[in-house]
Design a protein around this nucleic acid. Sequence first.
DNA 1: AAATACTGACTGAATAGTTAGTTACAGTGC
DNA 2: GCACTGTAACTAACTATTCAGTCAGTATTT
Lengths: 206, 206
Amino acid sequence: MNDSVSFFEEPEDTREEILKATYEAFCEHGYSDITIQKISDKFPKSKSLLYHHYDGKDELLLDFLEFMLSQAEEQFPLRTGEGADEHIELVLDTMFLSGGILTDEDFSRAMVELRAEAAHDERYREYFTRTDRFTSRHVEYLIRSGIEQGVFQEVDPEETAAMFQVMFVGTATQKVTSNESVLEACRSEFERYIRNCLLRDDTDAD
Amino acid sequence: MNDSVSFFEEPEDTREEILKATYEAFCEHGYSDITIQKISDKFPKSKSLLYHHYDGKDELLLDFLEFMLSQAEEQFPLRTGEGADEHIELVLDTMFLSGGILTDEDFSRAMVELRAEAAHDERYREYFTRTDRFTSRHVEYLIRSGIEQGVFQEVDPEETAAMFQVMFVGTATQKVTSNESVLEACRSEFERYIRNCLLRDDTDAD
DNA sequence: AAATACTGACTGAATAGTTAGTTACAGTGC
DNA sequence: GCACTGTAACTAACTATTCAGTCAGTATTT
C-alpha cells in the first residue's frame, strides 16, 4: 500500500531513508497531521538523527517538497521521437490515468496537500511556481512543435499551455478530494477540445 | 484585510461569531496551523465557550466547512432571465475574476486548504462531493438549456459540465498556490474553447 | 585521534480538552 | 410587585498529553 512508488523502494542513504519515512507518514496521516514523531515512527533509526540531518521540521518538509517536485518533473513525459500529435496523447494519460507514477493516488494526495500549503507559505509557493513554469514551458514547446510540424492549428502556444497547466492542477485535485467521479467525462470533453481546437483537420487524408 | 467578505461582517449569534473567528484564524494562519487557541484569540468571548457550542475541534471545523460550502453554493451564479450564452459569461467571471465573493482571495485560500484536507479525511470528501455535484449539475442544466435555446451546439452536457468542474477546481487552486500567473492566458484559451466547441456558429447573423 | 553517524533520555512550550463554578434570564408561584 | 427555580451562556483555572527540539554521550568510520 505504501511503497508502490518505485523511487522510494530502496533508499540508498540516510537522507533517502528520511524522505521515504516522510512519504509514508504523509500517506498515512496527511500533511495537517504530520509530526516529527510520526516520521520517526516510519524511520528505522532514531528521531534525534532527523535533527542531525535537518535543522528542524520546516527544513525537512521543504526538502521533502523539493524531492517530490523533482520526482514529478522527472516523470513528466518529455519529447521523444514521435510527432507532437502522438506526444500529446502521453500528456493526456499523465493528466487522467491512474496507475502511473505521477498519477499514483498516494503521490497525488501528497502533492495536493503540499500544494495547498502554498496558499499560506511563500516558500512553498515559490517551489510550485518553479514546477508550474517547468510544466507550462514544456507544454508550450510541445504545442509550438506541433504547429511547426503542421499537425496543430496555429493557436497561441502560451495560452494553450496555460489551459493545460490549470487542467493538470484541476484533475489532480479533483481526483483525490471528491467522490464525484467526473474525470472520465472530463477526459472525453478535453479530447473533443483537442480535436476541435488544437489538431489540424486532416479531412483530406481521413 | 480580513472581513472583506460580507457574510462575516455582522455575526448575529454566537455560532456566527465563532465561525467568523475561525475564518479570521484561517486567513491568518492557514489550515495546518489552526488551533483552538488561535480561534479563541479572534473570538471576543472565552475559549471554553467554544467547547460549550461544539464537542471539539473536529466538529467545529466540520461546521465551518459546511458553512463555507453553503456560502459557496449560495454565491454560485444561478439561472437568471437571460439566455444561456449570456449566463455562461457569468460562470466564466466566477471562475476567473478576483474581487467577487466566490473569487475573494482569502475565501479561495481557505477553500483550497479545506479541500486538500479531503485527500485524507472521508468526511471532508463527502462534503466536497456534495458541492461538486451541485456545481456540475447546475452547469449541466445550463448547457442543456443552451442547447434547447439553440445557442449551444449539441454537445454532451454531462461531459461539458465535467470539464467546467475541473476548471473551477483548477483555477481556484492555481490562483492561490502559484505565482506563475497563468490565469489570464487560460481564460483566453477557455473562451476560445467555448466559442469553438460550445457556442453555435452565428455566421449567418454576424 | 578526529570526525561523523547515531541514540535515549530529557525539556519547556503549546496543545486539546475538562471542571467547577458564575452569570443572565425566562418562567412560575405567591 | 418579589422570591424561587431551572436552564443555557459563559468563564478562569486547571490537567494531561503531545509537540518540536536539545543534549550528553556512544558507536563507527577514517
